[in-house]
C-alpha cells in the first residue's frame, strides 16, 4: 500500500541526507519526495511517498522519530487528505497537432507555458491518476521530457500537522 508521510524537520545542514540515508540503510523505498519551507522559520516539511506494508511503515515512522532533527512524522494516508503533484511535459508539437494538444490541456485544466516551432511545455497539477491520464494522451504526440515535483499533501478540514 502507498503511504504519504509528512515530516517536519529542523532545517539544519544534513537533515535531508539523514532522512534519505535512513530509508536506504534500512531497505525502505522512497517513491517520491518533496521538500519546502513551512510557516515556522527554521522548520521544513518533507512529504515522502513510500510503498510498504503496515508493519514496515510502522518501523519507518519509528526510525524517523529517532532522528534528532525530526520533530514530527504523520502518516497522511490514515486520514482524508488532499494530494497534489505538479508535472511539466515537453511534448512534440508540429503546427498541425497544436490545437489537438491545446484541447487535451484544457480538458485537464493544464497550462501551456512555453511554445517553440516544434514543441510545447505543458504544466499540469493533480493526483496520480490525472497525471498518468494526460501523460498517456500526450504520448501519442511524442513526449520529449518529463519532470515531476513529487507529491505534497495536506489533511482535509481544519486539522494541521504542526511541530508542537
Amino acid at each position: 500500500m502507498k503511504h504519504i508521510l509528512a515530516i517536519l524537520v529542523e532545517n539544519k545542514p544534513g537533515a535531508l541526507t539523514r532522512i534519505s540515508g535512513l530509508f536506504s540503510r534500512r531497505g525502505f523505498n522512497i517513491e517520491n519526495i518533496a521538500v519546502g519551507e513551512t510557516v515556522t522559520p527554521g522548520i521544513a516539511r518533507m512529504t515522502i511517498t513510500v510503498e510498504s506494508s503496515e508493519k514496515v511503515i510502522e518501523q519507518v515512522v519509528k526510525q524517523l522519530h529517532k532522528l534528532i532533527n525530526v520533530i514530527k512524522v504523520s502518516n497522511l494516508s490514515n486520514e482524508p487528505s488532499v494530494t497534489r503533484e505538479l508535472m511539466l511535459i515537453k511534448v512534440r508539437a508540429e503546427t498541425g497537432s497544436r490545437s489537438d494538444i491545446q484541447q487535451i490541456v484544457e480538458t485537464f485544466r493544464g497550462k501551456v507555458v512555453d511554445v517553440s516551432p516544434d514543441s510545447m511545455i505543458i504544466e499540469v497539477t493533480g493526483n496520480d491518476d490525472k497525471l498518468e491520464a494526460i501523460k498517456l494522451l500526450l504520448n501519442h504526440f511524442g513526449i520529449k521530457e518529463i519532470v515531476r515535483t513529487g507529491k505534497v499533501a495536506l489533511l482535509r478540514g481544519s486539522k494541521v500537522t504542526r511541530e508542537a
Binding site: G14, G21, I68
Partner: peptide, 16 residues
C-alpha cells in the same frame, strides 16, 4: 567524517 558516521552515530555535528 560526519557523512561517514551518519548511520553509526546517534547524532553528529559539523561546527561552522
Amino acid at each position: 567524517i560526519t557523512g561517514i558516521t551518519l548511520p553509526i552515530t546517534k547524532h553528529n555535528y559539523l561546527v561552522k
